[in-house]
Simulated scan of single mutants.
Amino acid sequence: MSGMSDVRLALQGQELVAGQRRAAAPREISHWRLFWQRCHTRKALLNLTCEQLRDIGLTAEQARQEGVKPFWRS
Rank of each mutant, 00 (worst) to 15 (best):
Met1Ala: 14
Met1Lys: 14
Met1Pro: 11
Ser2Phe: 06
Gly3Ile: 03
Met4His: 09
Ser5Leu: 15
Asp6Asn: 11
Asp6Trp: 08
Asp6His: 12
Asp6Glu: 12
Val7Lys: 14
Val7Ala: 11
Val7Met: 08
Arg8Val: 08
Arg8Ala: 08
Arg8Pro: 01
Arg8Leu: 09
Leu9Asp: 15
Leu9Arg: 14
Ala10Met: 07
Leu11Phe: 09
Gln12Ile: 14
Gln12Val: 13
Gly13Asn: 09
Gln14Ala: 12
Glu15Met: 15
Leu16Arg: 09
Leu16Thr: 10
Val17Ile: 07
Val17Arg: 10
Ala18Gln: 07
Gly19Pro: 06
Gln20Asn: 08
Gln20Pro: 03
Arg21Asn: 10
Arg22Val: 09
Ala23Thr: 02
Ala23Met: 05
Ala23Lys: 03
Ala24Leu: 06
Ala24Trp: 03
Ala25His: 06
Arg27Leu: 14
Arg27Ser: 11
Arg27Gln: 12
Arg27Ile: 11
Glu28Gln: 15
Ile29Gln: 14
His31Thr: 10
Trp32His: 14
Trp32Cys: 13
Arg33Glu: 13
Leu34Lys: 13
Leu34Asn: 11
Phe35Leu: 15
Trp36Thr: 13
Trp36Cys: 12
Trp36Arg: 14
Trp36Pro: 04
Gln37Ser: 06
Gln37Phe: 02
Gln37Asp: 08
Arg38Val: 00
Arg38Gly: 00
His40Glu: 07
Thr41His: 09
Arg42Tyr: 02
Arg42Ile: 02
Lys43Gln: 14
Lys43Ile: 07
Lys43Met: 11
Ala44Trp: 02
Ala44Tyr: 00
Ala44Thr: 01
Leu46Met: 04
Leu46Pro: 00
Glu51Cys: 05
Leu53Asn: 01
Leu53Glu: 02
Leu53Ile: 00
Arg54Ala: 14
Arg54Cys: 04
Ile56Glu: 03
Ile56Thr: 04
Ile56Pro: 02
Gly57Val: 02
Leu58Ser: 01
Thr59Glu: 03
Ala60Pro: 05
Ala60Asn: 04
Ala60Met: 08
Glu61Asn: 05
Gln62His: 04
Gln62Ser: 05
Arg64Met: 13
Gln65Lys: 08
Gln65Arg: 08
Gln65Tyr: 04
Glu66Ala: 05
Gly67Lys: 02
Lys69His: 03
Pro70Lys: 09
Phe71Ala: 09
Phe71Thr: 01
Phe71Glu: 06
Phe71Asp: 05
Arg73His: 06
Ser74Thr: 11
Ser74Lys: 15
Ser74Asn: 12
